[in-house]
C-alpha cells in the first residue's frame, strides 16, 4: 500500500484515492478525429517519472496532480490543479 501525499490531507494510503490516469490536455479542437483519438487512447506509459491525476475520493475529495515514478512508485510531488507546479527537474530521481 503506497502512500500518496494529498496536497490537502497529507500522506494517506493509496486505497483512499481514485486513479484518474496520465494527465493529458483535452484538445480544444474536437473535429480532428486523429487528434481526438490520440487524446482518448494514446498513452505515454513511461517507465519512469509520470504525471498523473488522482482524486482523494475517500478523503477530502480534492483532485490533484502527482509526479510518480512508475517503477519505484515514489511520489516526488503533488499539487492542486492550477497551482504553481513544483520544480522537480533538479531533484534526484532514478
Amino acid at each position: 500500500m503506497i502512500l500518496l501525499p494529498c496536497p490537502h490531507c497529507g500522506k494517506r494510503n493509496s486505497n483512499e484515492f481514485s486513479y484518474l490516469g496520465e494527465s493529458a490536455p483535452r484538445p480544444t479542437e474536437t473535429g480532428d478525429a486523429k487528434l481526438w483519438r490520440a487524446y482518448l487512447y494514446t498513452k505515454e506509459n513511461p517507465a519512469g517519472w509520470t504525471r498523473e491525476t488522482w482524486l482523494h475520493s475517500g478523503g477530502c475529495g480534492k483532485a490533484f496532480l502527482a509526479e510518480r515514478h512508475s517503477v519505484t512508485n515514489e511520489v516526488r510531488a503533488t499539487w492542486l490543479p492550477g497551482r504553481k507546479e513544483p520544480d522537480t527537474t533538479t531533484e534526484a530521481g532514478s
Partner: peptide, 16 residues
C-alpha cells in the same frame, strides 16, 4: 510494449 514501440517512434494505446 510501449517502451519498445517508443524506440521506433510508435505510440500505443497501452497502459502497463
Amino acid at each position: 510494449a510501449s517502451l519498445v514501440a517508443g524506440m521506433a517512434g510508435v505510440k500505443l494505446p497501452i497502459i502497463t
